[in-house]
Design a protein around this nucleic acid. Sequence first.
DNA 1: AGCTAATATGGCAATATAGCCATATATGAG
DNA 2: CTCATATATGGCTATATTGCCATATTAGCT
Lengths: 110, 110
Amino acid sequence: MTEDEKYKSEGRAAILKAISHPSRIFIVDKLNEKPYCVCELAEMIGIDQSTTSKHLSILKNAGIIDDTKKGTTVYYSLRCKCLLDFIGCIENVIRMNIDRNKKYMGVGNN
Amino acid sequence: MTEDEKYKSEGRAAILKAISHPSRIFIVDKLNEKPYCVCELAEMIGIDQSTTSKHLSILKNAGIIDDTKKGTTVYYSLRCKCLLDFIGCIENVIRMNIDRNKKYMGVGNN
DNA sequence: AGCTAATATGGCAATATAGCCATATATGAG
DNA sequence: CTCATATATGGCTATATTGCCATATTAGCT
């Protein structure tokens, strides 16, 4: 890899990595509906508030979400709607994987 | 999260995680052109052959790439073209981040 | 069978991540 | 100022990941 390619790949990986966690994917998916605050997300996910806050700061540092304060409450929102289309692509891979498994297991061929 | 939501989020995260590494993003990008074998990719990336093989098996297990043997050589190919569109989305986030940094640093406003 | 080339796998050390608890910080009410 | 609520941060342990080296496996050739 040239320096340029390395830099580019690292940048892309950093963003992907930020989303690559069950709780964070869930957050991105939820924020597509509307903004939510930390405690709402923590409640929905079922993990500690502090852990949720850390997840949100990872997404924020990656430039994936934005935050707005209202009193002591911080609302997070999606910064880039295209992220949803791309989840569609991931779903596509999942569907392909399921089909393949079915084929290997002979489901639908008996 | 309900059991269903948890399962779904874990599935999505598993696929994303598989791609979330500089070398693996690079591989996906390269395989979009055409299939390559392990040693070609190792050479391009500049890492050990064994490490490259492990990266490829991670992508393969996630259902992102396919392999075909020709003699002792194994050619890997992209299984899902939509992955490229989604890299476009990542690029979009990167562009937004750059713009934001410029704004904070006052570039273009003097 | 014996040799070579291409991949894959096991083992290991260094580093990173996820989650919790405890605590710090910040905002608004009284 | 004091208290309560919402977030953020520090510290810690358990676990996972990355990369290399050494070695096993596989396929083709003679």
